[in-house]
Design a protein around this nucleic acid. Structure first.
Lengths: 211, 211
DNA sequence: ACCTGAACACCGTTCAAGT
DNA sequence: ACCTGAACACCGTTCAAGT
C-alpha cells in the first residue's frame, strides 16, 4: 500500500464538498501568499475565497490562524532539512559538505524571507501553540547538522566538544547571518548574506577545527 | 543652551491640550505595552486611551503604526548601544570586555524578547519605513562592536581581517544566539542563551584570535 | 462530518469639523 | 497647530443552521 509522508495510508478519496484534502490546500495557499506578499498580508478570508470555500471552513482543520502558521512553519522545516541533507551529501560530507550546508541554509532563508520568518519570527507563541508536528520537523532539521558534526568529530576534523552544544553554536551563527541578511542589516556587505557565510565558514573553521 | 540627544534645542513648553510631549509619551507607552504583553497586543486605540487622548491623536506625530514601531525600535538600539558600551568599558576592554559585550547583548535580548523582536522582527519593512533615526541608532550600536574589534586588532589580540567584516561575523553569532534563545529553540541548553554565549565566547575566540 | 452565512467584537486609518 | 468623534473598510472568530 502506498503511504504518505506522515506514514498514514493514502487513499484516493472522493471530493467531499470541494476538496479531497482541504487541510493540505489551506497550507499550500497560505504558504503561497506568505511567499508572494508576506505574512502580514495573509488573511484567512482571502485564503478561503481563493480556494472557493467559505471563510470559516478552515476552522474544521485548524484551531486558529496561529495553528495554520505553525503547519506552514513545519512544512518549512521539512524543506530546510531536505536542502541541508542534499548539500551535505552532494559534497560527500567533510569540510566541503559542512561549508555547503551553511551556504544552503542561508540561501534557503534569503530566497524565502517571509517563509523563514514564519519559522522563527515568534508569530507562534512557543508556549501556546502546542504543535508537535512543528517541533518534530524543526528537531529533524537540526539533527542533520548534529549528525554532520558528529561525523566530522569521528574523522578528527572537529573539536571533541559536546556535539549538541557545538551544533547549537554553529546553528546560531548561520541563523544569525540569515536573519541579518533578511533584515537588510547586511546592506554594506558586497555579496550579501551569502558572502558573509563564506567568510564565516573560514573563521568558524579555525574555531572548531582541531589544531 | 541645553540640547536634547537629537541636537535640537530643548525648551520647557507649556502643555498644549494634554501633553508637553505627546510623541515621547506615545513611544514610551508603546514600548511599555510591547514589553509587558508583546507587539501583537499593541493597539493604537488602547495607547491613546491610556494616555487620555483620542485614538487618532497619534497621527499628528507618526505616519502610521509602523512608524511608531520604528521609533520604539530606534529607542531599543539606543539602549542596546548603552549596554554594550558599558560592558566593554567596565572590563577595561580587551578579551574580558569583548566577552562581557556578548553576554550583555544576549541579556538585553532575552530580558526584553518582544522589544528585541521589534528591532529585528521585520515588522518594519526596511524599504517602506524610511526612518533615518532607526538606521542611525542601529549603526551606532554596531559601531560600538566594531570599535572594540579595531581596538583588539591594535593590541594584537584579533586577526587582521577587515574589521567591518569581522564585526558582522561576530554580530551574526551573537544575534543568532539571542534569536534562538527568544524563540525557545535553546530549550535543551541548560543555562539557556547565556550559557551558549559563554560557550561561543570560547569557540569564537579561537576562531578570531591570532595564534 | 463537513460546510455555510450572518453576526460579533475588534482593528488601523481617513476626514470634516472643532479650538 | 493640535485635537476630536464619526465613519469606513477591513480583520479573526463564533455560532446556529444546513447537507
Amino acid at each position: 500500500m502506498t503511504r504518505g509522508e506522515t506514514g498514514r495510508p493514502v487513499r484516493k478519496r472522493r471530493n467531499q464538498y470541494h476538496h479531497g484534502d482541504l487541510r493540505r490546500a489551506l497550507i499550500d495557499e497560505a504558504a503561497r501568499v506568505i511567499g508572494a506578499r508576506g505574512v502580514e498580508h495573509l488573511t484567512l478570508r482571502a485564503v478561503g475565497q481563493q480556494l472557493g470555500v467559505s471563510r470559516t471552513a478552515l476552522y474544521r482543520h485548524f484551531a486558529d490562524k496561529a495553528s495554520l502558521l505553525a503547519a506552514v512553519a513545519a512544512e518549512g522545516f521539512r524543506q530546510l532539512r531536505t536542502d541541508l541533507a542534499a548539500a551535505w551529501e552532494e559534497r560527500g560530507g567533510g569540510r566541503a559538505g559542512m561549508d555547503a550546508m551553511g551556504i544552503a541554509y542561508v540561501k534557503f532563508a534569503v530566497e524565502r524571507p517571509s517563509y523563514y520568518r514564519v519559522m522563527f519570527g515568534g508569530l507562534l507563541d512557543a508556549e501556546r501553540v502546542r504543535c508537535d508536528e512543528l517541533v518534530e520537523h524543526a528537531t529533524a532539521a537540526f539533527q542533520v547538522l548534529e549528525d554532520a558534526v558528529i561525523a566530522q568529530q569521528r574523522d578528527g576534523l572537529v573539536h571533541a566538544d559536546d556535539p549538541a552544544e557545538l551544533s547549537r553554536y554553529i546553528w546560531a551563527t548561520v541563523h544569525g547571518i540569515a536573519m541579518l541578511g533578511i533584515d537588510g542589516q547586511l546592506r554594506h556587505e558586497a555579496g550579501g548574506a551569502e558572502a558573509l557565510m563564506r567568510f564565516a565558514n573560514e573563521r568558524l573553521r579555525t574555531g572548531i577545527a582541531l589544531p
